[in-house]
């Protein structure tokens, strides 16, 4: 069981690389990542949309004791970010003194390395937020 099994990583590329989401044909709710059933209305038909890469910090923490996958990054800011359009994501806030992060802070998503499977394994990319 590795979160960085190549097949497992690859199937997330549309969402992690391009921020692809699904807008429900029935109620318009946007699911990110895309789902089979809309959690808002249980609709099953969707259109592919891309998330706006700008948003603001809703709530945040600074992780001082990290999991082994991120332990050399501590202390790092982790936040729930609300993107323009209302979709919320969990991500790190990079390129900032963690002490300066606060609720309401405007941020923009940037493409970053999220994890790697050691020095020889796959590198998993995705997005982190940076101060806008």
């Amino acid at each position: 069981m590795s979160p960085l099994n190549p097949a497992r990583v690859a199937r997330e590329f549309p969402t992690r690389y391009r921020l692809e989401a699904a807008r429900c044909d029935g109620c318009g709710a946007v699911s990110f990542p895309p789902r089979v059933v809309c959690p808002a209305c249980r609709g099953r038909k969707f259109a592919t949309v891309s998330l706006e890469p700008e948003g603001k910090v809703l709530t945040w923490t600074v992780i001082h004791v990290g999991p082994s996958s991120h332990k050399h990054e501590v202390p790092y800011a982790l936040a729930v970010v609300e993107l323009a359009g209302g979709v919320r994501i969990t991500c790190q806030i990079a390129d900032v003194d963690p002490a300066r992060v606060e609720a309401g802070m405007p941020v923009r998503l940037e493409f970053r390395r999220i994890q790697e499977d050691g020095e020889a394994g796959v590198i998993a990319y995705g997005h982190k937020a940076v101060p806008a």
Partner: peptide, 30 residues
């Protein structure tokens, strides 16, 4: 830590470096 984190969303939270104390900390801040 990794075993306990399996109770969070592996793809949406843990992948990005979330821990349980971290998730509850964000609820505390809110």
């Amino acid at each position: 830590t990794a075993a306990l984190a399996a109770a969070a969303d592996a793809e949406l939270e843990v992948f990005y470096g979330a821990t349980f104390p971290g998730l509850y900390a964000m609820m505390a801040r809110a």
